[in-house]
Every structure is written in structure tokens, then in C-alpha cells.
């Protein structure tokens, strides 16, 4: 916090530290006591499973037996697996379609709601509401809206734009695009707030100078705001692509947990869940899918770091 609150008076020590009066020396193990809970959880539940995932991916383990080393067989099998190809296509398409919207639209939104006043504050709060909702709730709300007899189809019918209800939740591509729409809907407010924080750091003089030069709101947005938040845009590009590739809840709920007719809408995370759980779970194979996911996301991250370093030099 930037403003320190009042410091509580320290009660006199009941027992002087070792060596009587004067500065105390901390015992060597004191830091480890402080670290123990956090380190214990993170090592046990993040780092160990990570190593174990790598190990699993080269075995034919199932839920019921540990499995043997089979080299890269799982990855060879992935290469020919139609379901895996579908999942990769869907998840990558998700990144390609969702990320540009997530980078651009919240910036426009932030520029519009930036400023004082109650009304703008109200809009900011309202725009943020979808962010705090679970993907299941978001999915259910949109299932109601996009259903055969949901609001969207009823409105389209009322306007006589369609005769037959549109299969937003049954058509192979429409379902995927519906899920993307839902993801965008629930993420706009989040990135808007991040942009707002970045915009607060832009020098007000730049706006004044632009105004003096006769630049209107649109010019000021394009020539001052947008360049001023460029590094934030890059970060949001990374965040939203990682999030888009990991998508699970929206697609799961919109397809009723099945991943669409014949699994046509499964994403990579859904595939991991389907292959790795249940009594027939092939944990080794699911591990291999996980490793692929890890490599893709690692690649995105490395690309971002490279881009940032290049920009700073």
C-alpha cells in the first residue's frame, strides 16, 4: 500500500532476545517456518504434478494401473487422433477469433467510461459484473438466450429475419462462435479495468497538446490513448490468448457437457478432462495432451517475452 497506516505500538518484549539488550539475530530456520505452508502446497500440488505429468506422458498408464514406459508412442497416437485434431483446431480458432476482440474492444470501452461522475462509475460497475460470474452461470444464462426457443431466436423470429430457429447451440461452427461470444462477453470488463489503470499513467499534457492542435476525441484516442497503452495491449494479448486456449467452462455448459454432437466442439482442456477422468481414463494419454498444451502455452509466453525485450532495448 502506498500510504502506511498507523503503526501499532510494539509492546515491550517479555523476554529479551538472545544476547540481552540490542539487536536480535534471527534463527536460521525462521524463514523456513514462514515459508513452510506456501512452499509445501506449491511443491506438492503444482510442481510435483507438473513433473509427474511429464512422466505420465511417456507411459501407457491408466487410472487403475501405473503403466510402462512407451517412449513417444502417445504423441504418435495424438498425431493421428481425429478428436485431438478437432480439439486443437477449436482451441486455436478460439485464440485467433477471441484475442483481437479482447485487445481492441475493451480499449474502446475504457476510453468511453474513463472519467469522473456517477454515471460513468455506474457503467464501469455494470460492465464489470459479468467478470465475477462463474463460467457455469454465464453458460447457463446464454444457454437460455441462445436456445431454440431462447430470446435471441424469438427476437429474430419477431423481426421476421428467420423462419426456422437458428441452431446456435447445435450447429458445429455456430456453437463454437456462440461460445466465443460468451467468452468475450464475460471478459470485456476485466480487460477494460486493466486498460483504465494503464490510461491513468498517460501524461495529460499529451491530450492537451493534441487538443490545441485541433484533434477531436477520435483523433486523440488513436494518436494518444492507443499508443500510450501499447505495452498493456501486448500483455492483454498474451493473457487473453492463454485464457482462450485454455477455455473449458463455456463450451462445456453450452454443449451440455458433451462437447457437441460427436465431440465436434471439444477443446483441448475438455479433451484432457474426458481422456483423464472416469473409470476408462487413460492418464498417460491425457498426460501427453497436457504436455502439448503446456508447450503451446509456453510458446505463447516465450513469444511475448521476446517481444517485450525487443521493445525495451
Amino acid at each position: 500500500m502506498s500510504t502506511p497506516t498507523l503503526v501499532k505500538p510494539v509492546p515491550p518484549p517479555t523476554r529479551q532476545g538472545r544476547g540481552g539488550v540490542g539487536r536480535t539475530h534471527d534463527r536460521w530456520w525462521a524463514p523456513w517456518l514462514f515459508l513452510a505452508p506456501a512452499l509445501g502446497i506449491v511443491v506438492t500440488f503444482i510442481l510435483f504434478p507438473f513433473v509427474n505429468t511429464l512422466a505420465l506422458s511417456v507411459t501407457d498408464a491408466t487410472l487403475l494401473k501405473p503403466g510402462h514406459f512407451i517412449g513417444v508412442d502417445n504423441f504418435v497416437r495424438l498425431w493421428d487422433d481425429e478428436r485431438f485434431r478437432t480439439a486443437m483446431t477449436n482451441s486455436l480458432l478460439y485464440v485467433v477469433c477471441v484475442v483481437p476482440v479482447m485487445v481492441a474492444a475493451p480499449l474502446v470501452l475504457a476510453a468511453l467510461v474513463n472519467g469522473g461522475g456517477r454515471l460513468l462509475g455506474f457503467f464501469r460497475t455494470a460492465y464489470y459484473l459479468p467478470v465475477i460470474m462463474s463460467s457455469v452461470i454465464v453458460g447457463l444464462i446464454w444457454t437460455n438466450l441462445l436456445d431454440q426457443r431462447g430470446l435471441v431466436n424469438e427476437v429474430l423470429r419477431w423481426l421476421s429475419l428467420v423462419n426456422e430457429p437458428v441452431g446456435f447451440l447445435s450447429d458445429r461452427w455456430l456453437t463454437l462462435f456462440s461460445a466465443m461470444l460468451v467468452t468475450i462477453w464475460s471478459g470485456l470488463g476485466y480487460y477494460m479495468v486493466i486498460y483504465l489503470a494503464a490510461m491513468a499513467n498517460i501524461d495529460q499534457d499529451l491530450y492537451d497538446a493534441a487538443s490545441v492542435d485541433g484533434a477531436g476525441p477520435v483523433r486523440r484516442f488513436l494518436n494518444v490513448t492507443a499508443p500510450g497503452v501499447r505495452s498493456t495491449s501486448a500483455l492483454i494479448g498474451l493473457f487473453s490468448s492463454v485464457a482462450a486456449f485454455r477455455v473449458f467452462g463455456e463450451v462445456y455448459v453450452l454443449t451440455g457437457g458433451t462437447g457437441g454432437l460427436g465431440g465436434q466442439n471439444v477443446t483441448v482442456t475438455m479433451l484432457i478432462q474426458q481422456e483423464g477422468t472416469g473409470l476408462q481414463a487413460e492418464t498417460g494419454y491425457a498426460g501427453a495432451i497436457s504436455v502439448v498444451m503446456f508447450v503451446v502455452l509456453g510458446g505463447l509466453l516465450a513469444g511475448q517475452l521476446w517481444y517485450q525485450n525487443r521493445g525495451e532495448r
Partner: peptide, 17 residues
């Protein structure tokens, strides 16, 4: 490092644990 590990990619191993 732990921050950078995507949860979805280790979730099966977490479950086994």
C-alpha cells in the same frame, strides 16, 4: 515457475495425487 504452470495441463496428475 509455479505461477506459470497452467493448471489445466497438470490437472490429471493433481487428481491422481
Amino acid at each position: 515457475v509455479a505461477l506459470l504452470v497452467p493448471i489445466e495441463s497438470i490437472i490429471i496428475a493433481q487428481f491422481l495425487l
